[in-house]
C-alpha cells in the first residue's frame, strides 16, 4: 500500500463521544494543527493567486493574450521588441497548454482501459501471484519521478537498450491533423512528424503513463473486491453476456470510484514534472505546463510563472472539490449496499 495517492475511507464522521478533552491540551493541539495546515497549505495556495495577480487582471490576462497596440499607434523599437517578445512567450505558453492537454488526452484513456482490466482480473478471479500483481501495479507510486524518466531514457535513448530502433522510429503527430483543402487531393493531412522517441512528446506520454499508471486501478480495486461477484453471477445466470454484465452491472456499480480515479489520473498527468522534465530534453516545443513554469521562473518572469501555476492550482482545488463531492455522493448511495454484501 505504499505511496497511497489519496487515501480512501477517511471521511470524517461526527465526533464520537469520548471523555471530555483536557481544555488546555485541546487548545494547544488545535492551534498547532491549524497553524501547521495554514502555513503549509493555505498560505502557499493563496500566494499562488496573489503573485499571479501581482500586475492586476490585465497583467494576468497578458500572459495568455499579450496586449495588441492600436493600429495607428507609433511604437519605438524597444516597445516593438517587447511586444514581439511577449507574443513569443504567450505562444510558448499556449503551446505548453496544448501539449499538456494532448498528453492527458492519450494517457488518461489508456490508463482507464488498463485500470478496468486490471481491477477486473485482480478482483473477480483468484489466481496464483495475484498479490504480487497488485503490488507491481502499485510500484510506480514508489519510484522517484526522476527515475521514471531515467528508465525511458535508458531504454529508448540514443545509447539505450532499444536505442537503435527507437532513434530511427518515425511517427506522425496525431494532433497535427489539419484541413489542407482539396487541392492536395485528400483534404486532411498530418502537418508534423517526429523521429526518435526520447526528447519528443511521445516520451512525455510514456513517462506520464508510467507515473499515472496505478491511479484508476487503485481506486477501483478495493471497491470491486468488497462488492464480490454475486451481481455479476446473477446477471450471467440470467443469460447476459460477459460484456453486457461488465457494462450494465459492474461499471455502474463502480462509477464514482472510476470517476475519482480518472480525476486523480488527469490531475497527475497535467502536473507531472520530474519524469517529464527528464525526457523532454528541455526543448521549448516539449514543454508541458509544469515545465513552462520552470522556464518562466528561470527567466525571472515571476508573475507569468505564477499565472501558469494558478491554472494548475485551480485544477488541484477542483480535484479536491470533486473528491469531496464524490465522497458525499458515494455516502448517499451507501444505504443501497445493505443486503448486497459480498459472499
Amino acid at each position: 500500500m505504499a505511496g497511497a495517492p489519496i487515501a480512501a475511507k477517511t471521511a470524517l464522521g461526527p465526533i464520537k463521544p469520548a471523555p471530555p478533552p483536557h481544555p488546555v491540551a485541546r487548545t494547544v493541539l488545535v492551534t498547532l494543527a491549524v497553524s501547521f495546515l495554514t502555513i503549509f497549505i493555505l498560505v502557499p495556495l493563496v500566494n499562488v493567486f496573489v503573485q499571479a495577480f501581482a500586475k492586476g487582471l490585465d497583467g494576468y490576462l497578458a500572459v495568455f493574450w499579450p496586449p495588441q497596440p492600436a493600429p495607428e499607434q507609433v511604437l519605438s523599437v524597444v516597445q516593438q521588441r517587447k511586444l514581439a517578445e511577449a507574443a513569443v512567450q504567450a505562444g510558448r505558453t499556449w503551446h505548453a497548454i496544448g501539449l499538456t492537454l494532448s498528453v492527458a488526452a492519450i494517457v488518461v484513456p489508456l490508463n482507464i482501459c488498463f485500470g478496468l482490466a486490471a481491477a477486473w482480473a485482480t478482483t473477480k478471479f483468484n489466481f496464483r501471484g495475484r498479490a504480487l500483481l497488485i503490488s507491481l501495479i502499485d510500484l510506480p507510486f514508489s519510484v522517484s519521478p526522476v527515475v521514471a524518466g531515467l528508465v525511458f531514457v535508458l531504454l529508448l535513448g540514443r545509447n539505450g537498450i532499444f536505442g537503435d530502433w527507437a532513434t530511427h522510429l518515425t511517427w506522425i503527430d496525431p494532433f497535427s491533423l489539419r484541413w489542407v483543402g482539396f487541392e492536395a487531393g485528400f483534404p486532411l493531412a498530418f502537418e508534423r512528424d517526429y523521429s526518435g522517441v526520447i526528447f519528443t512528446p511521445l516520451a512525455i506520454v510514456l513517462a506520464s503513463v508510467f507515473v499515472t499508471f496505478p491511479f484508476v486501478a487503485r481506486s477501483l480495486t478495493p471497491l470491486m473486491e468488497s462488492q464480490g461477484t454475486d451481481e455479476e453471477l446473477a446477471a450471467l445466470s440470467l443469460g447476459a453476456s460477459g460484456w453486457r454484465t461488465f457494462f450494465k452491472i459492474t461499471v455502474p456499480n463502480v462509477k464514482w470510484a472510476l470517476l475519482y480515479g480518472v480525476i486523480l489520473c488527469t490531475a497527475r498527468a497535467f502536473g507531472e514534472f520530474g519524469a517529464v522534465s527528464v525526457v523532454s530534453g528541455h526543448v521549448d516545443v516539449n514543454d508541458t505546463m509544469p515545465l513552462r513554469i520552470e522556464k518562466l521562473w528561470n527567466e525571472y518572469n515571476n508573475q507569468a510563472a505564477f499565472t501558469v501555476a494558478s491554472v494548475l492550482a485551480l485544477l488541484a482545488v477542483f480535484t479536491l472539490v470533486a473528491k469531496a463531492a464524490i465522497e458525499w455522493k458515494a455516502a448517499r448511495d451507501l444505504p443501497q449496499n445493505q443486503g448486497h454484501s459480498s459472499q
Binding site: E231, H340, Q343
Partner: peptide
C-alpha cells in the same frame, strides 16, 4: 443452463 438462481443476499442490481 436456463436456471434461475436466487442469491442469499439477493444480488439485486442496486442501480
Amino acid at each position: 443452463r436456463r436456471i434461475g438462481f436466487v442469491f442469499q443476499h439477493y444480488a439485486l442490481f442496486k442501480h
